[in-house]
Design a protein around this nucleic acid. Structure first.
Lengths: 159, 159
DNA sequence: ATAACTGCAAAACATTTGCATACAG
DNA sequence: CTGTATGCAAATGTTTTGCAGTTAT
């Protein structure tokens, strides 16, 4: 979930998994790939490719947009990042290691993202898997709605 | 669901709803808007804006892409069409009147779309709605996976 | 050494927009 | 008539690609 930074020990495990993945596939361990990994795993929220690119640029790490896109795909491939498509065409990313499975509730007014877990989704996956004879590898469940709280703090600033 | 054409009586009801919607809002009843409506409601599958544009063009009805996009938005506004975003950036549309609520299973190999219904999704909506104090207006549940059937007829032709 | 990676700028792609023209009401 | 819709082409925003130069191994 939109959580705190990963504990050091876990971060090390993830980093190792990443490096192993690179080695296994004979992919190079470039400074750009390392920097992007660290930046992503230092981010506990959802972000898009350009945000990440700009953040790096601002920190004085001039990595090209193309490399950001490439590396994000790499991270998605090795299951350390998930890519979300929330209604709009711009993809959002989120680090995914050691997160419990969660789904998203999106406010249609301010586009705020909330997260929730529900075990019933697993039963649905199981049932559909059996009915259609499919191996389900992932899912996305997005609920869209509006906050009923009178004083929703985001209402003012929202688009 | 990916079904047969709408029965004539239902199609008439929907058409009336569309025309009423246009009238209510002082929107013009242009030939383009009518043609697109008929074409969409003659389609029982998922389609994208460009497919629709090309199909019309091929039928000798030269409607501009801009008008196709505009009219689809109109149809989404009056709840006669739903827009889906299946992982990729290109939106898919589907006529929605009188369909029972359904969700989608997407084959990661051939991108074939399958549909299913499950009442548990409604319970999830209700629960999340209560927990977060939100009014949920819609949802999308996409399961992604691979067909286990040895002889999946699409495997050969798939991309 | 050499194959893989990066950066850049151009291309691609779906969608939106601005504006002159056409036409529904 | 009048303002709204259309068509076109240009603009947009995001992502991908081609290629020359760079670098990890």
């Amino acid at each position: 979930m939109t959580s705190t930074p990963l504990p050091k020990e876990q971060l090390e495990v993830v980093r190792k998994r990443y490096l192993d993945y690179l080695k296994e596939r004979n992919l190079r361990q470039t400074p750009e790939r390392l920097t992007i990994f660290e930046e992503v795993y230092d981010t506990s929220d959802h972000f898009d490719a350009d945000e990440l690119f700009l953040r790096l640029k601002q920190e004085g790490v001039p990595i090209s947009r193309a490399t950001v896109y490439n590396t994000l795909e790499l991270l998605v491939d090795c299951n350390l990042v998930v890519r979300h498509q929330f209604g709009n065409k711009q993809a959002k990313y989120e680090r995914s290691y050691s997160f419990w499975q969660h789904d998203h509730l999106i406010c249609e007014e301010c586009h705020h993202l909330l997260e929730f877990c529900d075990p019933r989704i697993q039963s649905i996956r199981d049932m559909v898997s059996e009915i259609f004879d499919f191996t389900i590898s992932r899912h996305s469940l997005h609920l869209y709605g509006r906050c009923r709280k009178e004083d929703c703090e985001r209402r003012a600033s929202a688009s």
